[in-house]
């Protein structure tokens, strides 16, 4: 459904500074997949989505979407896709129902079908009380729901969603997902979305693509990513430091134990199977006469994955993801911008 080869995008912000927003992304996404793209602010997620949806032309590389090249045949691509951008797609002076209806007609539904789809989505995304309101008078989350509803109106073969759930309360997020998944099953849609909600990517996506500084740094199912790149963590505390020392030694024998940290009476270790290893450790501790006061298993999150990949936490890097090459080197401000850092 999507195939990109070394896709790049540079934005020339000024004569002396170019942003390398995307630095060579090669992706293959098959029909029917549900893929989440994850990455800190400024990683290049939106830029990539905008290239895939024909909004901006790649600086280099190629992208084929739904069988058509995004540069050579954008019109054909557009007919196969739906896109919910990061901003608000609805016109501010429009009424909610009108905008949904227009969207349906734009995508070739006849009037009756457009009205019907609009009605269904209004109900599904709990916009019923807002149908007559101006878009400008909606709350942020309500507007977001309308955006997503508009993206779903024509049930396209490929749906691209840029942060669909940002700004939604938990109930509406769950509701949104329920609806997306239902439509996906019903219309066999391929879905690519970006998100900052790690739990969402984890629980909903079948495949997670982690992007950082304009490059794909990991690409697999959430389970494999977590197992391969993070692993479970067990944390136990002993009654005293001597006990902790012995616990640390015992934990070395657990399957694939690594990164064992002893901190006073507290022991931390990474293992391949936390829920299985912890009882094992408890038994051995009892046999050795070590009194354990607390024991916990931490399942890895995608944040742990990102941390292990980049040494940064996704939660901390928010807002620091600029990929700019400024003119820093001794006034040599011509033609050197292409040499990326």
């Amino acid at each position: 459904m999507i195939r990109t080869r070394s896709l790049t995008k540079d934005f020339v912000v000024s004569r002396s500074s170019t942003v390398h927003a995307v630095r060579g992304i090669s992706l293959e996404i098959d029909a029917g997949e549900l893929v989440a793209v994850l990455g800190p602010n400024g990683a290049g997620k939106t830029t990539t989505m905008r290239m895939l949806t024909t909004l901006i032309a790649p600086t280099s590389g190629t992208a084929t979407v739904a069988g058509h090249d995004v540069v050579a045949e954008p019109a054909q691509v557009r007919r196969q896709i739906g896109y919910v951008g990061q901003g608000n797609g609805a016109g501010h002076t429009q009424r909610v129902r009108d905008e949904l209806y227009s969207q349906g007609v734009i995508y070739g539904l006849d009037r009756r079908a457009a009205r019907q789809r609009a009605g269904e989505l209004i109900e599904a995304l709990e916009l019923t009380e807002l149908t007559g309101r101006k878009v400008a008078d909606l709350s942020g989350g309500q507007r977001r729901r309308l955006d997503v509803a508009m993206g779903l109106v024509h049930a396209p073969p490929l749906l691209v969603l840029d942060e669909p759930s940002t700004g939604l309360d938990p109930q509406n997020r769950a509701n949104l997902w329920q609806h997306i998944l239902r439509m996906r099953a019903e219309y066999e849609m391929t879905i690519v979305l970006t998100t900052h909600y790690l739990d969402e990517a984890d629980s909903m996506a079948e495949r997670v693509v982690v992007v950082d500084h304009g490059e794909v740094i990991a690409d697999d199912t959430p389970e494999v990513l977590k197992a391969k790149l993070a692993g479970d963590r067990i944390v136990v505390t002993a009654a005293d430091t001597e006990g902790a020392r012995r616990l640390a030694r015992l934990s070395e024998h657990l399957p694939e134990a690594r990164d064992i940290v002893l901190d006073g009476a507290r022991v931390e270790a990474r293992v391949s199977d936390g829920p299985g290893s912890l009882p094992e450790l408890m038994r051995e501790a009892q046999d050795a006469g070590v009194r354990v006061t607390t024991a916990q298993v931490h399942r890895p999150t995608l944040d742990d994955v990102f941390l292990n990949l980049t040494g940064r936490s996704l939660r901390e890097t928010e807002g620091n993801g600029e990929n700019t090459d400024g003119e820093n080197s001794d006034g040599a401000n011509t033609d050197t911008q292409e040499a990326a850092a």
Partner: peptide, 15 residues
């Protein structure tokens, strides 16, 4: 205004 909100972008992606 539609540039800011994203409404223009949405129209541009349509066929």
């Amino acid at each position: 205004f539609e540039f800011q909100t994203g409404a223009h972008e949405r129209m541009m992606v349509t066929p």
